[in-house]
Design a protein around this nucleic acid. Structure first.
Length: 894
DNA sequence: GGTCAGACTTGCTGGTACACAG
DNA sequence: CTGTGTACCAGCAAGTCTGACC
C-alpha cells in the first residue's frame, strides 16, 4: 500500500529519534516541496543535523550551568507596531498588496484556493491512497493548473504567519474592529487570480497579515525549516537534579540518539519516555483519496484508514528499553489499571494517543500531605448596621471580613456578587439576627482595620519580614517535597485553599458565594502503598480517604466547595519530571502535526462544500481552530460563566467571551466557501443558537483523531504557536548584540500571544506612566530647543541665554552643544520607543504562551545558536520547568 | 451516542521582592 | 535613599480531554 510508506516514515522517525543519517536541508524553500512530499527524510535529515550541531554547540554554554554575566539590557525594542488589536482582516487592512480589489485582503481567499490547489496538485501527483501524513491529499482538483511548490512551505508555516495580521483580538480595551466588522466574516470576493498569488504559498498566517506590527513576518520564506526532525528524539527528561541524568542526556543530545534510547534508560524510572511517538504510531491513518464527490458523504474519518503495523514494534522496543510504562495504554478500565500497577512494565499492545491513561505514573510515592491555613483569628472590629455597631460571632465576622476587604474591587459593583454573598452570609447570621439586609451594612470599620494591618505589615523592618518568612518556610518545609520513585520533587500547591468568597471571572453566576474552609475530612490523600500515611495536621481530625493509585499524579484532592462536582488537586510542581515528561509529549505531538497539517488542511478545505452538514461543520470548525487558534469549546453548565469556544460559537458570535471571560473580537476574511458555509449554518437560527449545531468537542476530536493519532483541537494552538515562534526567530534574527536579539524574541513571543488571544488587563498605573513619559519627552524637547538656540548663538560667538532659573549657563563650543543635542535626541527616541512598546503590550500577556505553548527547545536552541544567555528569556521557574529541554541540539527546529 | 466523573492543562490576577532612576 | 516600575510567583479559576457508564 501506498500507505505504508508514509507510515514508515513516521515510525522511523520516531524511533529513530536517534539517528538519522540523512542530510538535512533546511533551507531551500524551493526544494521544500519536494522534500516534503516525498519524504520524511527530511526529518531524518534534520536529526542529523542535530548531531552536527551538537558539536557546534560546544561553543555554547551548557544550558544549565550558565552564568550569565551578561547584562542585559532591558531596553525594549522599539516597536512600531500599530496597536495590537487592530482588526485584522478587515478590508481596510487588506490593501496592501492588492490594490486591485479593495476587497481582497491580504489574506486570503486566494489563499485558500491556492492552497487547495496546491494540495490537490500534490494529490494528483500522488495517488489515491495516502496517509494523511503523507502529503497526498485526498482532494484532487483537476482544474488546477499550477502548483506552487511553495505550498509545502505553507503548511509548515505557522498560522500566524499565514495570517498576516491576525489581529485578532480585541482586547478589552483595544479592539479596533467595528461592531459590524466583528459581527461576521467578511467574505472576500475577490476574484482570485490564478493561484499564483504569492501569498498563496504563504502559510495561512501569512495570509492574514498581522497588523500587529512587529512587522516582521514576511511571508515567504519559511521553507527552510520545514524539515525539521520531528521527533527529536525523545530525550530524557532532564530531570533537574540528577547529575547522572543530566550527563547522559547531554550526551545523547550531542549525537544522534540511538534507537535504543540508551540514554533514556537511565531515566526510565522517572521519565517516561515520550510516548508521543508511540502514540502516533498507534494509529496510522491513511486517507483514501478518492477524489470524487462521493467522498463527500463519506466521513473523512472513514476515508482515512489507519495503518497500524509498524508502529507497535517500535513502540514496544522503546518501552522495553526504557522500562517505562508507556502512556499509551489506553482504555484500561479501572480494575485493570490497578492490576497493572503490579506489573510495572507490562505493556498493553494498545497504544493510545492520550497521555497516559491507565498508565503507571510512579512506583513509589512519599509525601507529607498538605498544610492547612491557620484558624480564623477574630479581630473584634465591629461593622455598622444602620449606623450602629453590631456584634458578630467569629464565624460571622470572618465572612464579613472577607466581604469587607473587597470594598475596592469591581466585584462590589456586581449585584450577583452581593446577592450570593448575602445568601451565604445571612444563613450564618441566622433568622433572628439584627442584620436583615446587606444594604444597611457598613463594612468600613473592618475595611479600615484591614488597611491598617496591611500598612503595619508594610512597615515591618526587613529583619522582621525575613524572620516571618523563615518561620513560614520552616513550617512548610516538610510539605514542599515529595519523593517520587526515589527522587525528591517539588510539590506544586501543598497549601489547602483558605476560605474566602468565590471570585469567578466574568459574569460567573456563583461569584460571591462563600468558599468554606476545607478540613482534613474533605481530603483524599494519594500515596505509595509502603509510604507512611501523612499525619493529619489538625489534631483530632482525620483524612477522608487514603488511596494508593499510581495511575494518577495527584497527591491529594478535595471537592471544590463551590462546585462539589469538581475537584481541587494537589500536584507536583511544574519542575517535576512527571510534569516535564508530559510537557514534552505535548510538544512532540504538536510537532507531529506538522507532518500532517497539509493534508488536514486539504481535507477540511474540501469539506467546506460537503453535502453532509456535520461534515461541513467539522470542516469549518477545524478551519477556525487552525486559523484563529480558537479553543475547542466544551459545553458549559448554566452555573458557569457564559463563555464559548469553537464548538459552542453562537450564530451571532464573532465577538464573544472566551476562557476566563476574555473578549475575543476578530474580523477575518475567510475563504468564500467558509463564508458560505457559515451563512448556511446561520440560516434559520437566532443569534443565541449554536452555530455548529451538529457538533461538540467529542465529535470534533474524534474526527481529528482519525486524521492524526492523538490529535485534538488544542494541539493546533500549540502547533501554531510554536511554529510561529520558530519561524519568526529564524527569519528575523540578525547579527546584533544580545539585547537586540532579545527584542526579536519578544516580538515573536508577542506575535504568538496575539494569535492565542492572551490578554492582560491594563495596569492601573498605565495611563499615569504614559503621561509621565510624555512629560519627560516634552521636557527633553524643550531642552533640545534651548540647545538649538545656544548652538546658533555659539556659532555667532554669543554666550548662551540664561536658564530658567536665571542662571548663566556654561559657555560651550558649538561642537559640545551639538554633541549634547545628539545625546538628547537619542534619549527622546528611546523614550518614544519605550512608550510605543508599552502601549503595544499593555493588553498583551506574553507569559502564558511562554509557559504553555512555545516548545522550549525552540528557545533553547535559538539561544545556543545566537549566544543569547537562556536566562535572558527564561526566568528561574521556567528554567526549572523546562529542564528537560536544556540539552537540545542547537540545530533543533520545531 | 450522550453524559459525567475524573484528571490534568491553561490562564489571568494580585501581591511582593527586587531593580532602577533620580 | 526613596519612590516607581516590573518581573516573578503563587493562587486558583476555568478550560480540555478521556474513559466509564447507561
Amino acid at each position: 500500500m501506498a500507505v505504508e510508506a508514509p507510515s514508515k516514515h513516521v515510525y522511523d522517525y520516531d524511533d529513530e529519534d536517534d539517528d538519522g543519517p540523512v542530510v538535512f536541508k533546511r533551507s531551500n524553500t524551493s526544494s521544500s516541496k519536494q522534500n516534503q512530499l516525498n519524504s520524511e527524510v527530511k526529518k531524518a535529515s534534520s536529526q542529523r543535523s542535530d548531531g552536527q550541531s551538537g558539536r557546534q554547540a560546544s561553543s555554547v554554554r551548557a544550558p544549565n550551568g550558565q552564568n550569565s554575566v551578561a547584562q542585559a539590557n532591558k531596553s525594549i525594542p522599539p516597536s512600531k507596531s500599530p496597536p495590537i488589536r487592530s482588526p485584522i482582516l478587515s478590508p481596510k487592512s487588506s490593501n496592501s498588496s492588492a490594490k486591485a480589489s479593495p476587497v481582497r485582503s491580504p489574506v486570503v481567499i486566494s489563499k485558500a484556493s491556492t492552497s487547495l490547489n496546491d494540495q490537490s496538485k500534490q494529490a494528483s501527483k500522488q495517488n489515491k491512497f495516502t496517509s494523511v501524513k503523507e502529503e497526498k491529499s485526498p482532494i484532487k482538483r483537476t482544474d488546477e493548473t499550477n502548483s506552487d511548490d511553495d505550498d509545502d512551505d505553507d503548511d509548515s508555516k505557522p498560522l500566524s504567519a499565514r495570517l498576516k495580521g491576525i489581529s485578532s483580538q480585541g482586547n478589552k480595551g483595544v479592539s479596533t474592529s467595528t461592531p459590524a466588522q466583528s459581527q461576521r466574516f467578511v467574505p472576500k470576493i475577490e476574484v482570485k487570480g490564478s493561484a499564483e498569488d504569492p501569498d498563496d504559498d504563504a502559510p495561512l498566517s501569512a495570509r492574514f497579515s498581522m497588523k500587529s506590527n512587529t512587522g516582521t513576518l514576511s511571508s515567504k520564506p519559511y521553507g527552510s525549516h520545514e524539515k525539521k526532525p520531528l521527533a527529536s528524539k525523545i530525550q530524557q527528561n532532564g530531570s533537574i537534579m540528577k547529575d547522572k541524568q543530566q550527563k547522559s542526556s547531554m550526551l545523547s543530545d550531542k549525537r544522534p540518539l540511538d534507537k535504543g534510547n540508551s540514554s533514556d534508560q537511565s531515566y526510565a524510572k522517572k521519565l517516561k519516555i515520550s510516548d508521543t511517538p508511540t502514540m502516533m504510531k498507534t494509529k496510522q491513518v491513511t486517507v483514501k483519496a478518492e477524489k470524487d464527490e462521493e467522498d463527500d458523504h463519506i466521513p473523512i474519518s472513514q476515508r482515512i484508514k489507519k495503518s497500524v503495523s509498524s508502529v507497535s514494534k517500535t513502540a514496544s522496543l522503546k518501552q522495553k528499553a526504557t522500562k517505562v510504562v508507556s502512556s499509551s495504554f489506553k482504555k484500561i478500565n479501572k480494575k485493570s489499571k490497578k492490576d497493572m500497577k503490579k506489573s510495572k512494565y507490562s505493556k498493553s499492545t494498545k497504544l493510545s494517543p492520550s497521555s497516559g491513561d491507565g498508565q503507571k505514573k510512579w512506583s513509589t510515592l512519599v509525601h507529607n500531605g498538605v498544610i492547612f491555613p491557620p484558624p480564623y483569628n477574630p479581630h473584634g472590629v465591629k461593622m455598622l448596621y444602620d449606623g450602629r455597631p453590631v456584634d458578630l460571632t467569629p464565624e460571622q465576622e470572618e465572612v464579613a471580613t472577607m466581604f469587607a476587604v473587597m470594598q475596592e474591587t469591581d466585584y462590589m459593583s456586581k449585584p450577583q456578587f452581593k446577592k450570593n454573598f448575602w445568601e451565604d452570609w445571612s444563613k450564618l447570621l441566622g433568622r433572628n439576627h439584627v442584620i436583615k439586609s446587606l444594604d444597611k451594612c457598613d463594612f468600613t470599620p473592618i475595611y479600615e482595620w484591614h488597611l491598617q494591618e496591611k500598612e503595619k505589615k508594610k512597615q515591618m523592618s526587613s529583619e522582621e519580614k525575613k524572620a516571618l518568612k523563615e518561620e513560614k518556610l520552616k513550617q512548610e518545609e516538610k510539605y514542599m517535597w515529595a519523593i517520587v520513585d526515589g527522587v525528591k520533587e517539588k510539590v506544586g500547591n501543598f497549601r489547602v485553599e483558605p476560605p474566602g468568597l468565590f471570585r469567578g471571572r466574568g459574569e460567573h453566576p456563583k461569584m460571591g458565594k462563600l468558599k468554606r474552609r476545607i478540613r482534613p475530612c474533605d481530603i483524599t490523600i494519594n500515596i505509595g502503598k509502603d509510604a507512611p500515611i501523612p499525619e493529619c495536621p489538625i489534631p483530632g481530625e482525620r483524612w477522608k480517604d487514603i488511596k494508593h493509585d499510581n495511575t494518577v499524579t495527584w497527591l491529594a484532592f478535595w471537592n471544590d466547595p463551590i462546585n462539589p462536582k469538581e475537584f481541587k488537586y494537589v500536584f507536583l510542581a511544574a519542575s517535576s519530571s512527571l510534569k516535564g515528561q508530559s510537557d514534552k509529549e505535548k510538544y512532540e505531538k504538536a510537532r507531529l502535526l506538522k507532518d500532517y497539517i497539509k493534508n488536514i488542511r486539504a481535507a477540511y478545505t474540501k469539506d467546506f462544500t460537503a453535502k453532509d452538514v456535520t461534515k461541513r461543520q467539522i470542516a469549518v470548525a477545524t478551519y477556525l481552530i487552525d486559523k484563529l487558534a480558537l479553543r475547542a469549546g466544551n459545553e458549559k453548565d448554566d452555573d458557569e460563566a457564559d463563555t464559548v469556544g469553537c464548538c459552542t460559537l453562537k450564530v451571532g458570535n464573532f465577538d464573544f467571551l472566551g476562557k476566563d471571560s476574555i473578549q475575543y473580537v476578530n474580523t477575518v476574511e475567510v475563504e468564500l466557501p467558509v463564508y458560505k458555509a457559515i451563512g448556511q449554518f446561520q440560516t434559520g437560527k437566532s443569534k443565541s443558537d449554536d452555530l455548529f449545531d451538529e457538533l461538540d468537542t467529542s465529535k470534533l476530536n474524534a474526527h481529528l483523531k482519525e486524521l492524526m493519532p492523538g490529535l485534538t483541537a488544542k494541539v493546533f494552538r500549540t502547533y501554531n504557536a510554536s511554529i510561529t515562534l520558530d519561524d519568526m526567530l529564524n527569519k528575523e534574527t540578525k547579527d546584533g548584540d544580545v539585547a537586540e536579539k532579545v527584542v526579536i524574541y519578544q516580538r515573536a513571543n508577542k506575535e504568538v500571544a496575539i494569535i492565542c488571544n492572551h490578554q492582560r488587563s491594563i495596569s492601573k498605573s498605565h495611563s499615569a506612566q504614559m503621561s509621565r513619559l510624555t512629560e519627560k519627552i516634552t521636557e527633553l524637547k524643550g531642552v533640545l530647543k534651548e540647545l538649538k538656540t545656544d548652538l546658533d548663538r555659539a556659532k555667532k560667538g554669543k554666550p548662551p541665554l540664561k536658564d530658567a532659573d536665571g542662571k548663566q549657563k556654561r559657555n560651550l563650543t558649538p561642537e559640545a552643544i551639538e554633541k549634547k543635542m545628539a545625546q538628547t535626541n537619542v534619549k527622546i527616541e528611546k523614550m518614544e520607543r519605550d512608550m510605543q512598546t508599552k502601549e503595544d503590550l499593555k493588553t498583551v500577556a506574553l507569559g502564558t504562551s511562554k509557559i504553555n505553548y512555545l516548545d522550549p527547545r525552540i528557545t533553547v536552541a535559538w539561544c545556543k545558536r545566537h549566544e543569547v544567555p537562556i536566562e535572558k528569556i527564561f526566568n528561574k521557574s521556567l528554567l526549572a520547568k523546562f529542564a528537560w529541554a536544556m540539552d537540545v541540539d542547537p540545530d533543533f527546529r520545531f
